[in-house]
């Protein structure tokens, strides 16, 4: 009965990636490369308006056409990719840090503290995140920075709740009792033994969250509480182009597609990592 269990870990190591998985990886790598290096190659003209060339359809000179200011849509997307992805990374990293801190304190602390923090988390979970972020951002004054801060302080409850549960499970493992018997401090117990063995799931969530955050950030910018024009951020770009949907569709479709592709790519990356980690999910 032990034999299949022996075969498993070896199986996981040996297996190659499917064509679809390779495609998703390539897409994510391409998006990251574009966001990091793309803006270096952008022509200066995208920052100045050229009314004579406004709303030109896609052509050899302007692959995705030009917008109402006569700026090249393609290069604005590339520059916007950096703003958008960087902001999304920042948001997810910030709220993950908050979530990890709260989860660790709750898991390590006495019962009353755990209970208290989890009730606060429950309240956070019950509130609709985007609406609260909208409120925060509006109160701080509409800007990309406000939107990032607002999302960072509203995004942590899911992470905190999930991680605290996983850490409690990890704390049941024999090696944690072993560390206690050895006499390690509470700080070392949590940071060296419990936390590193609980973070795996966060990596999965992190990839998926980038995708959702790109979408939410674009939405906030679209309704005017995030990045402001002339920023090339995708949501802001869509917002300023929305008047031209019927006359110059490319000005809206291009950034819209960029948002969709990016959020789907990171979402799929999260799914792939999750399935890879848990062989029982395979075959779906």
């Amino acid at each position: 009965m032990t034999a299949p269990a022996i075969a498993q870990p070896a199986a996981r190591r040996k297996e190659g990636f499917s064509a679809f998985e390779m495609f998703v990886f390539a897409l994510v790598v391409a998006l990251l490369a574009i966001a990091v290096f793309g803006p270096f190659f952008a022509p200066d003209s995208i920052y100045s308006s050229d009314i004579a060339n406004s709303l030109m359809p896609p052509s050899a000179a302007n692959w995705f056409g030009t917008d109402d200011q006569g700026r090249d849509v393609f290069w604005r997307l590339i520059v916007g990719a950096q703003t958008t992805l960087l902001s999304a990374f920042l948001v997810v990293t910030l709220y993950s840090l908050i979530g990890v801190t709260i989860a660790t304190v709750a898991a390590a602390g006495p019962r009353w503290l755990d209970e208290g923090l989890m009730r606060i988390t429950d309240i956070g979970l019950a509130l609709p995140g985007m609406i609260v972020a909208l409120g925060f951002a509006a109160a701080m004054g509409a800007s990309l920075r406000s939107a990032v801060i607002a999302m960072a302080i509203t995004g942590w409850p899911i992470t905190a709740r999930m991680l605290r549960g996983i850490m409690r499970q990890t704390m049941e493992q024999p090696f944690v009792a072993g560390a206690q018997v050895l006499g390690v401090s509470k700080w070392r117990l949590m940071t060296k033994h419990v936390l590193p063995n609980s973070l795996d799931v966060l990596i999965v969530k992190w990839a998926g969250d980038i995708g959702t955050t790109v979408l939410v950030l674009a939405s906030l910018s679209f309704i005017g509480v995030g990045a402001q024009p002339p920023s090339a951020e995708w949501g802001a770009t869509i917002a300023s182009a929305r008047g031209y949907v019927s006359t110059a569709w490319w000005t809206v479709v291009a950034p819209g597609a960029a948002v969709a592709i990016t959020s789907i790519a990171f979402g799929l990356l999260g799914d792939i990592i999750q399935v890879r980690r848990d062989p029982s999910l395979r075959g779906n």
Binding site: G178, V181, N197
Partner: peptide, 24 residues
């Protein structure tokens, strides 16, 4: 007292898989 106790009384568990931190 507790520190001395922790140093002088040690243990070995049954499960050789779960009793060692896999990240160390």
């Amino acid at each position: 007292d507790l520190r001395r106790f922790r140093r002088e009384v040690q243990m070995v568990f049954q499960d050789p898989y779960g009793s060692l931190n896999p990240r160390m």
